[in-house]
Each structure stands twice: as C-alpha cells, then as structure tokens.
Write a protein that binds this DNA or RNA. Structure first.
Lengths: 201, 201
DNA sequence: GTACAATCTGACAGTTACTATCAAAATAGA
DNA sequence: TCTATTTTGATAGTAACTGTCAGATTGTAC
C-alpha cells in the first residue's frame, strides 16, 4: 500500500499500456485513419467507452507523454556548470538513454507515426505550448530567476527552433534510432549559437 | 476580365466572406462549440455542403489566413537597412495598419476567439509550422542566403518566441485593439536581444 | 469471510463533424 | 440562344466523441 501503488493503480496502468500498444500495432499495420477506435478497443479487449476514459482523443494515444515533466526535471537538476542549452541537451539525452529497450522501440514507432501522419504532426504542434511553458518554468527554477517575458521568449524560441528541424528526418526513414538521437543532440547544441538569454533588467 | 477578377470569382469571395462573418457572429453570441456547422450554413444561406467546400474544417473559419504570404512578402520587401527583427516588426505593423476598419474589427474578434477557446488555441499552434516555413524562406530571400539549418532554427525560434507571449493578453480582454498592436510590436523588438543569426559556415 | 462503499467498466443512445456521390442550377463563352 | 464548365444542394453514410446508468470489481471495516 505504501511501497507499490496499489492493485487498482497497477491494473489501470496495465490497461492503459495495453491500449496504447495495441493501437500502435494497428496503426502500423493498417494506417492511422483506417484504424477505428472501435477496432483498437476490441484488440485491447476493452469497450470503446473505456478507451475514451483512458485517452480523451484518438490522437492522444500517440501523442500523450511526448514531452513530459520528467524531462524538465532533469533539465533543472542538470550539473550546474552547464549552460542552458547544454542542460537541455543533457536532459534529452539522459531521458532517452534511460528507457528500457522495449519502450525505446515503442518510442521509435511513435516518432515515425508522428512524422508520417499529417494529422498527428498537427496534433504534436498543438501540444507544443505545454513544453514551452514547462521549459520556461524550468529555466526560472534552474536560474533562480523570475519567469519574465525574456525567459518565456527564450523557451518558446528553443522549442520552436527544434520543431522546424524535424522535416529533415524524412530522409532517414528507417535509420538507426540511436543515430536519430545523436541528431537531436547535435541540433540542440547549435541552439547555443542562435539563442542568448539577456540578464534581467 | 483583365481588371476585375470576373463575376464568378467575386461571387465566391463574397460567399466566403459571408460564411466567415456569420460564423464569427454566431461564435461570439453562442460560443464556438455550441454553434454547429449547420447553423452557420443556415445563417449564411448556403448548404452545409457548400460550407465545407469553402472551409475544410470548422476551425478553419477562424484560423485560415491568420498569418499569410503577404506578411512574409512585406518582410522580404522591407527597407534593406532594417535588421531581421526590425523587418519583422515592420511587416507586422504595416500589415495590420493596412486593414480597413471593418476588417480590423473582425480581426480583433478572431483574435479574441483564438485566445479564449482552447480548441482554437490548439489549432492555431498546429498551423504554426507554416508561418515558420514561410519565414525561413523569407529570410533566405531577404538575405540572399541559402535556407540552412541555422536559418530554419532562427525562423522557428522567432515564431515560437512570439507564441508563448500570448497568455499575457488574457489580462487585457477588452483593451483597445490598437494598443494590442503596439504590444506585439514591442515584443517583436525584444526578440532582437534574444536571437542572433550566425553567419553561414 | 461478509457487508458496505467507492470506483471502474460496458452497453446503449445520441450528437455532430466530415466524406462521397450525383443531379440540378448558375455562369462563361460562342 | 445554345453548349460546356463550374458551382451548388440534397442525400446517405462513417466515425469520433459525450452522457447516462446499471452491473461488476476492488478496497475497507468488522
């Protein structure tokens, strides 16, 4: 009761994971649009009602948890001698590296879907404001600084800059996932040359 | 035939404008979600089919043309002595200033809707990649420079930075539209302090 | 182990955005 | 006025999503 999150919680987590896994498999096989929620529910052996209890929309099966709080947490906790962009790189790298191999595969599949299905690309962008806000907050905490307009702009700029780089991924459809990771890291580093956070007034 | 765009074209433009205007009025009165496409079509005196011919989705009635090619055109054509961010400011300012009063009102209403309806906020963000790409291309043309990763990142950063500033608008719900415009200009200027576009390698 | 309370699930019915198709109407050009 | 092209409206259908409610499952107290 104190150590494990309780039977109920565990069962819920398992149901959620099952739905997500089965959905991704179906998407991969038949395509995103051609896979109905009903089919997903059937594959996961739950009712459609239950599907919507776990994921408010069909998109969310793919998009939820794409960038989460733990990444920002790692950003804030990164070695203090690192610059902002270095800390960001650090957070992304250690985050992905910490995934068990199995989750890493799913993550890779998810990325591919997001890249290839226009609808999901759109959805991802729509979710992007949350990471921006999280990062702005993270910067404030990391620097012990009030979250002013400059900080917000810096955060928005950082996420925005990374966003537009995605298209080049198209060329490397079936590349090694780890290579893609290096790619992200490489790009995050380049941010340093473009972005400057001025001191508060 | 050569001067005016032809009767057919004009009629289509008028139909489109009517749908948009009636839709915005209904949204304002009854709320976005509570206004069905059917109701909009009825108010504009067209069939639902026709509605979807002019606007692929309900969201698009509010979001389409939010940032268009002409803004980028003005950016490229801005006085050459202006810096990138100054040119951006110039483009935004002259763009809005050129609107007739009536369109300006609609624009204001549209902005309010986007700010207040979460669904539309989401949609706006989703459309944001297009402006990013347009701007990246514009920068390339303005500087006579190849559109490399640095340029793309810069463009993404610029749009991203402006995105996250929106929330503060919440405070000024019914402020003078012109004041809001000044606000945007002010913020674009601050971009200069944060963003640097390095020379090509 | 039993009884009760809280939560989770499934079944059902309904709304609405959106698609596809095709015949009727409006417009351009001769 | 006649014909070709484009635009429109009517109809039918799909699927995402919502709300409700009774039944099943789990946690808790005794």
């Amino acid at each position: 009761m104190s150590t494990s999150p309780g039977l109920r919680e565990r069962k819920k987590a398992r149901t959620r994971a099952t739905i997500q896994r089965e959905a991704l498999k179906l998407f991969q096989r038949n395509g995103y649009a051609a896979t109905s929620v009903e089919a997903i529910a059937a594959a996961a052996e739950v009712s459609p009602s239950t599907f919507f209890r776990y994921f408010p929309t069909k998109e969310d099966v793919v998009l939820s948890d794409f960038v989460d709080e733990t990444t920002i947490e790692r950003f804030v906790e990164a070695p203090p001698e690192l610059s902002l962009t270095e800390a960001l790189t650090y957070a992304v790298r250690t985050g992905i590296a910490s995934l068990p191999e199995e989750d890493f595969e799913l993550e890779h599949l998810r990325n591919r879907l997001i890249r290839e299905v226009p609808e999901l690309r759109r959805g991802l962008l729509a979710e992007m404001m949350r990471p921006m806000e999280l990062l702005a907050d993270g910067i404030g905490r990391r620097l012990g600084r009030e979250v002013d307009d400059d900080v917000r702009m810096y955060a928005g700029a950082a996420i925005g800059a990374l966003t537009l780089l995605e298209p080049s991924y198209h060329d490397v459809k079936d590349a090694d996932p780890r290579a893609l990771l290096d790619d992200i890291v490489e790009r995050t580093k380049r941010l340093e040359r473009i972005l400057v956070l001025p001191d508060p007034d």
